[in-house]
Structure formats: structure tokens, C-alpha cells
Write a protein that binds this DNA or RNA. Structure first.
Length: 485
RNA sequence: GCGGAAUUAGUUUAGUCUGGUAUGACGUCAGCUUCCCAAGUUGAAGGUCACGGGUUCAAAUCCCGUAUUCCGCACCA
């Protein structure tokens, strides 16, 4: 299904909707999750924990969203996260100073150069607005971080633009107190904040968004010393270096040199296995190897995990080999020691990052799961049962003759164990369709026969098949079907 | 941030040119029906027509500003 149909579902069925929508001064780029969206998100994260965190023996932390200025001085965000911009005094259009100058004059000025260099280049080359030939104002820095003032003195601090800085600054304590051993993965789920110039397309470019980040600390001398690589050597990943993505096993990707070492190949493998379990169509995915110009300022090697949707390729995860960029700069700035012992060797660990955009992932899951069933005139959200916000609908065929009471009783018995939804009202077919749209994989219906022999019908979402089971079997059937893989 | 288009109930939409406080559908709720795959039946709720200002006897409708959404450009570390 396309963006519009997903949007309609999101609004009608409580997946997500605009923030502060009752006020006309609501800002762009902020969206909230409703009950269905939260259900999906929580389960998505539980799957992430199982398939990545627990599988690899990582630890998870939960850091502050507001962090001090020094953190971002060290991380480079205060210097590099800001773009030099110029504004046309006539038509008010904004441009990147470095790019505009390079386009017109072929003069390359690094983006973190002194602002006066851009102004001089503009003056000397008489650069005018490409749109209206107007003159430019002097170069300014636009930083995408939200600044906040702490306490009565309003001391400078920032909302984090990525969650991972907590992981870096917490690394020394965690390694010492949690009996750390390289390679060590530390993960975090939480919100990040970026003052995007043009937020667009609901969950796809937000100013406040969820990330699930993993930083794996490793000994740079032992990147091919990865025993668990055998777990994924035959896992097929899709990699794109030139025009088209190619399917290959992790082993082939490694041997062909496309992926630099076993360490990186292993994580690309388990990441693919994770996404396969979310129901996203992996045949529409690719790890795109980024060129030097596209990479983040801290990345040595970078692969974007992208998935094809009806609005184009969407970047869901950035996989960056950040080397010792972060630890060495935090070490320098804070004067804390970040070296650790790996066997008998003292090393400053390198970092491989798996930075996942949760909101975009959820959108992609919805788009890839939402299907139109023409034959039965219905929309079906074919979520994996373990990701569905509602596991099972508990319905009475009709309300009277004690069926309602019997249905309530069944609901009462399972509602703490499963995400169950009780519904008595309206035509049975309509109730089934409502459940189809929020992705509930099962519906249990109490009818007159239930009162006689204690059996109910259980209906499957995708096939619409029904079978009769005893009430006592419900628990084990559901337990088996909605369990995480 | 620039340019374009749009904004009417939960969703979708008529009405805007030609000013007289709003239409249909779906959905929701309550009842009847007791029917196992929505759209039988009766009834009900739900809209200060995005927000603010102006013109007018009168504004969803005309004018100005703002916000949001979508598209294109730019941006996306």
C-alpha cells in the first residue's frame, strides 16, 4: 500500500497523528503515537532486544536527553553539525554556502572553515542568488541542535541529536563496573532531537524522533577474530556498491572485500535477520555503501540499510565504523581515560555503530504489511503476530442468552497474558474487519454452542479460516502463535 | 528556508468562481435484528468550515497575515 493509505490507517486506527493538533500554532515535525502505534512500537523494540541485544550479549542503558555543552564540543556536533548557510536578501532563499560556492566557481571550501572565508569567496567571485540574482547576506551557521538553558543561569546545554553520546561518555564506568570485555555492545533506545529545516512526511522526517542505537566497542586489531561469524556466514544480505543491489551471503560479502572484516559482516548479518522477522520485505532492502562525500563526519566506513517503499528508498539504519573518533575526543575533552585492557593489550576501542530509526522502521513495517484483500473487500494489516498491537479479539456472536457473560469471562482470563480486545457490538463481520485493520492475528468468537460444549471458534486473520477449539486450549494456542520467534 | 497546491465532523467529500452560518458517504454510539465475515432497520451524537485580522447588513465563500499538510528545489552530519 502507499503512503496515503498508511496515513489514513494511522489516523483512523490510532497508530499515529499530529502532535498538539487542536492548536493552530502546533509546530511541524512532531507526531504522536496512539494506542495501536505504541503497541506496535513496544513489540518492535522487544524484538530488537531479543534479536540484537540479547543475541549478542549487549547491555542496554537509558541516558539523559539533555546533555552538557562539553559533550557536543567533544563529539564535534557543535562544530560540524552546523551548516554554513547564506540567505538571499531579495528572495529570502537559503543555500548551503560551501555548495553554492563550489557549484558556481569550483572553489572548494571545507564546510567547517571560518565563516569569513565564505564571505570573501562570495565577494571576490561576485556570487549572486542562483534563483533571482539577488545579493547574499553574510554567512551564518545553522546548527541543527536544540539549545536549552539549565537552571536560573540558563547554562548552555543541548537536546541530544543522537542517543549514542551517552553510550560513549558512560563507557568507562560501564566497562569497569559491568565486567566489560571486548567486543562489547552497548545499546540505547530513546528520543533524539534535530531542528530539521523542512520536516516532511509524518514519521519519516521528525524533529523529535526515536532511535535505537547500538555501539559495539572492539579491539581494532582483532576485527577478523569473530567466532560467532559462523552464525551468519550463510545469511543472505543485499549489498549495493554500484547501480543495483546484489544478494550475497555474509561470507561472500566478506571474501569479495565489499565488507571490510568479519566484525562488520557479522552485524550486517544479524541486522538483516532482525529485519526479516519484522515482516519487512528483505528482497526490497539493501546495504548501500556510502561514498566519502555522503558519510557522516565521524565515519570511516558506512553502510546505510535502506528499504524500498512507495515513496522511494528509505534509510532505516546507519551502520558506521566510527573508529576511535568518539572515545578519543571524549578522552581529550574530559581528561578521563577511555583505554581498556583486552587480554594483555591496552587499547582505545574502536566503535561500530548500528543506528536505527524506529519511526521510519515502523512506517515501513506498516506499508509492507498493509494489504488490500479485493476478494473479501477488506484491508488487512498482516503484521507478524508477535508485533501486533492486539493479539486476539474476543467477540460474542450475539449479546444475549448469556453469550456476553461467557465472552467476558474468557476475556478476563486471558487479558493479563495477551493483548486482547473485547467487543460485543455490531455485526460480527464488521468486528472481524476492524481487527484485521489493526493487525490482530486471531479472533475468538463465543456462540450458542459454546454454552453447550465449552468450545469457541478461532478465526485467523490472513486466511479467514475458522476452527473450533475448547476454551481450555485458548491459552496454549495463543502462547504458541504470538510468541516471539 | 524558497516556489506551488491544499486545509470543511474520526475518515473522505460537496459547497468557494457567482457571499445569505454546510452536503453526501463511510465510521462511531444506542436500540431492533441473533444473523459467522462490513455496508438490514430505527434513532442519535459529532462541524466556532486550520488560526488571527480585514471588507460587508451578512464570510466556509472575497482580501491580508500566520500555521500545518502534500509536491518540487534545497537540506538530511
Amino acid at each position: 500500500m502507499n503512503y496515503e493509505e498508511v496515513m489514513k490507517l494511522a489516523l483512523e486506527r490510532g497508530f499515529y497523528f499530529p502532535s498538539c493538533e487542536v492548536y493552530s500554532d502546533a509546530s511541524a515535525g512532531f507526531w504522536e503515537y496512539g494506542p495501536s502505534g505504541v503497541g506496535l512500537k513496544n513489540k518492535f523494540l522487544e524484538l530488537w532486544r531479543r534479536e540484537l541485544i540479547r543475541r549478542d550479549g549487549m547491555m542496554e542503558i537509558d541516558g539523559s536527553q539533555i546533555m552538557s555543552k562539553s559533550v557536543f564540543e567533544a563529539s564535534g556536533h557543535l562544530g560540524n553539525f552546523a551548516d554554513p548557510i547564506i540567505k538571499c536578501t531579495k528572495c529570502n532563499s537559503t543555500f548551503r554556502a560551501d555548495r553554492t560556492i563550489a557549484e558556481i566557481t569550483n572553489i572548494e571550501i571545507p564546510e567547517n572553515a571560518d565563516l569569513i572565508e565564505f564571505d570573501n569567496a562570495i565577494k571576490e567571485n561576485k556570487i549572486q542568488c542562483p534563483k533571482c540574482k539577488g545579493n547574499f547576506s553574510s554567512t551564518k551557521k545553522f546548527n541543527m541542535m536544540f539549545k536549552v538553558g539549565i537552571g536560573p543561569q540558563e547554562e548552555e546545554a543541548y537536546l541530544r541529536p543522537e542517543t549514542c553520546q551517552s553510550i560513549f561518555v558512560d563507557f568507562p564506568r560501564l566497562f569497569k563496573t559491568m565486567r566489560g570485555k571486548l567486543p562489547l555492545g552497548i545499546a540505547q533506545v530513546g528520543k533524539s532531537f534535530r531542528n530539521e529545516i523542512a520536516p516532511r512526511q509524518s514519521l519519516l522526517r521528525l524533529r523529535e524522533f526515536y532511535q535505537a542505537e547500538i555501539e559495539v566497542f572492539c579491539n581494532p586489531g582483532r576485527l577478523d577474530d569473530v567466532e560467532k561469524f559462523t552464525e551468519v556466514e550463510n545469511t543472505v544480505i543485499r549489498v549495493q556498491t554500484d547501480a543495483e543491489p546484489i544478494s550475497m551471503t555474509c561470507k561472500e560479502a566478506l571474501e569479495s572485500g565489499i565488507v571490510p572484516n568479519k566484525f562488520v559482516a557479522y552485524y550486517l548479518g544479524i541486522l538483516t535477520e532482525f529485519y526479516e522477522k519484522t515482516g519487512i520485505d528483505i528482497s526490497k532492502s539493501r546495504f548501500r555503501k556510502l561514498g566519502d562525500k555522503e558519510k557522516a563526519f565521524y565515519a570511516e566506513v558506512a553502510f546505510d540499510f535502506e528499504v524500498e517503499t512507495t515513496i522511494g528508498w528509505l534509510e532505516l539504519v546507519a551502520c558506521n565504523y566510527r573508529a576511535d573518533y568518539d572515545l578519543s575526543s571524549h578522552a581529550k575533552m574530559s581528561k578521563e581515560k577511555f583505554e581498556v585492557m583486552d587480554n594483555d593489550e591496552k587499547v582505545l576501542p574502536h566503535v561500530f555503530e548500528i543506528s536505527m530509526g524506529i519511526d521510519r522502521s515502523l512506517y515501513t513495517i506498516l506499508e509492507h504489511s498493509l494489504k488490500k484483500d479485493e476478494e473479501h473487500e477488506r484491508m488487512v494489516l498482516s503484521l507478524k503476530p508477535y508485533l501486533s498491537p492486539v493479539h486476539v479479539g474476543i467477540l460474542s456472536l450475539v449479546k444475549k442468552d448469556g453469550l456476553k457473560e461467557k465472552t467476558d469471562e474468557i476475556f478476563l482470563n486471558i487479558k493479563r497474558k495477551f493483548d486482547a480486545f473485547l467487543d460485543h457490538s455490531g455485526a460480527i463481520g464488521r468486528r472481524y474487519r476492524r481487527l484485521d485493520e489493526i493487525g490482530a492475528p486471531f479472533a475468538i468468537t463465543v456462540d450458542h454452542q459454546t454454552l453447550e460444549d465449552n468450545t469457541v471458534t478461532i478465526r485467523k486473520r490472513d486466511s479467514m479460516e475458522q476452527s473450533r477449539v475448547n476454551i481450555t486450549e485458548i491459552d496454549s494456542i495463543l502462547s504458541g502463535s504470538v510468541a516471539f520467534p
